[in-house]
Amino acid sequence: MSAQDFTPPQGDKMGVNWIGLYTIVRRDVQRMLRVPIQVFIAPWSSALLMIFVFGYVLGGTMRTIGGHKYIEFVMPGVLMMNIITAAFLQSSSAIYFSRFIRFVEEMLVAPLSYLEMVVGSLSTVVLRATFTGIGILIIGLCFGATTIESWPMFIFWIVAVSIIFGLAGILIGLWSKSFEQLNMPVVFFLTPLSMLGGSFFTMKMLPDWLHWILWANPFFYFINGIRGAMIGVDEAPQGLSIALTLLMIAGLGGLVWRLFSRGYGLRE
C-alpha cells in the first residue's frame, strides 16, 4: 500500500474560518446580482412611487408635522418599509432556495461553524438593505426630502432592523416547505404591520382608542427610531425603541442559533 500514515494534529482547533465566511457573503452577493431588477430596481421604483404620490402629491396639500413637510415625515417610513422587506426576502429566499435545491449541503459538509453560516448570511442581508436604503435616500434627495439629523443613529437603525428581519427571514426560510409558505409572512405580517406602523401617519392622527395599534406594533418602534435619526421627530422614547430592538435581536438570534445547532430544516 502506498499510503503514508496520516494523523491529524490533535487539539488543532480551527479558529474562525474567515475565508469560509467571506465565501458565503461572496456567493450570496453573486446570487443577488443575478436578479438586480428584483433586488434593487423593484424597491427603488416602489419607493419612488410612494414618495411621489404620498409625499409630493398628497403631502403638498397637508400641514407640516413637527415643523417638517409631510414628504420629509413620510420618507423614513418608506425607507424602513423597503429595508424590512429587502432584509427579510434576502435571507428567507437564500435559505429556502439552498434547502430546496439542496446546495446548502455544500456548507454542511464544510468546516464552517453555525455562527459563521448565520453571520455570513446576515452580512449579505445588511449589504442588500444598505444598498436599497442608499438608493432610496438618493431618490429622496431628488424630492428634497432627505435629511439626516444623526448619522450614528441612522446607521444603527439600518443595521439593527436589517439584522432583525434577516434573522426572521432565516427562521421562515428554515420552516417553509413551499414557496407559498415562504411568501405568507410578507402578505400577512410585513406589509400590514409596516403600513400600520406609522409610516404615513402620526399617533395624533388616530383617535385615542386606536393608539394601541401603534404601541403593540414592533414596526412602530423601528419607524419611530429611524424617523428620530432622520428628522428628529419621535413619538416613542428612543431608549424604549432601542431596548426593544436589541431585545428582538437577542431573542431571534438565540432562536436561530438553537435551530442551526439542532440542524432544524438543514440536516436530515
Binding site: 465565501t23 456567493r27 435545491i101 439542496r102 449541503e105 455544500e106
Partner: peptide, 19 residues
C-alpha cells in the same frame, strides 16, 4: 446538490472557499 444558475468554476471555487 448544486446552485443550478452558477457556473462550474464558481461552484468549485466557492467550495474551496468554504474549506
Amino acid at each position: 446538490n448544486v446552485d443550478p444558475f452558477a457556473k462550474p468554476a464558481d461552484i468549485v471555487d466557492w467550495a474551496g472557499g468554504y474549506f
